[in-house]
Design a protein around this nucleic acid. Sequence first.
DNA 1: GGACTTTATTAAAATAGTTTAACCTCCCAC
DNA 2: GTGGGAGGTTAAACTATTTTAATAAAGTCC
Lengths: 201, 201
Amino acid sequence: MEKDSDLYPLIISHVLKRIDLTEEEQRHFCSLLTVRRVLPRQYLVQQGDVCRHESYVCKGFLRSFYVDEKGNDYTLHFAMEDWWISDSTSFHLEAPAVRNIVALEAATLLQIEKSDLEQLYREIPAFERFWRIMEQKGSISQDQRIMNSISMTGAERYTALIQKYPTLEQRMPQRHIASYLGITPVFLSQIRKTNARQDLK
Amino acid sequence: MEKDSDLYPLIISHVLKRIDLTEEEQRHFCSLLTVRRVLPRQYLVQQGDVCRHESYVCKGFLRSFYVDEKGNDYTLHFAMEDWWISDSTSFHLEAPAVRNIVALEAATLLQIEKSDLEQLYREIPAFERFWRIMEQKGSISQDQRIMNSISMTGAERYTALIQKYPTLEQRMPQRHIASYLGITPVFLSQIRKTNARQDLK
DNA sequence: GGACTTTATTAAAATAGTTTAACCTCCCAC
DNA sequence: GTGGGAGGTTAAACTATTTTAATAAAGTCC
């Protein structure tokens, strides 16, 4: 297992890509973070809980999903190294989460609590900017996903997804990829068969 | 037509719901805004242009949409009174827009340019927070839309949409509502017929 | 190593959604 | 007034996607 002290350079370099910080500010930021390690199948957040942290993924792979009354499981998102994950609605409103977040691979996270984040905003306003930029980035990719969902077929969305995230198929089971795409696992399997047949020609 | 001076109270009250500002700060913010009036069918942004402004809607109704190579028109979003609209990707990256924004009803907008917005961030950091909050709000509703698109049928999405925005059917033609939902106008018409029949019973 | 559970594949039948084309209505330009 | 044009509806045929169910393959537990 990696030492805690090896984790901070990851997040610091991630932050410095977007804003400038003095060494003192960097240290202060790190002092507000806590390390969290989760094993595969462990839950970070459960539907109904309040999501208390924003979590930066140093290592591992996580999935967020929603389960409806009938027990259907819908993959809302996933997160890999150098991404953030949370139930942002729950986190900001301190309301019960409507989604679960679970580790698919053993993961190491750096977490920040809401009250500490708000303190950080007050002490180092550059972090308001940092978070605004992250929100914008997220918003752009959500926008793309919406555009795909209204303009593409299931097969096209699948192709676009694995092209965008080539390692995804190795890290997330097909049925979750299917639910992320808004199709059934059976149909995804058909798509893959058809593609494989095409590839031979 | 409304006087320009009647517009500022609208946006000020909108901003004050999220952050605190002194009267001086309010005046400064207003000094960076420009009034823009557009007639129905007039474009605010065209695919290929750079989107130079964030626009706050004081009055009217606008639609943003994407046209693909085959000429298909996909409604990405719409905006009514007290909403903001822009091509956020284009605005932030100063890259060509991939969407059009057009007025469906005569509209009055208050616009801010990127350079002025950045100046504002520097002078009144509370606006970083304001924009972060707006981004979060947008992100939550995008998230909801994605969830609907992967978990609901066309008919269910239609019902949810008109329930969320009861006035939408009066303001946006059906074919645009259909493309917003990711279905064809013909299918939307079928859904409406079925619903009407249900309602009778 | 075998029994069990979970995941992926396949095929067939059923449903959801699209496409095409005809028709209707309303509006407005001439 | 009349002849388009644009938007909406309807029906029919077609395609995409889901559902169900059976089977195979892989992973987990003891």
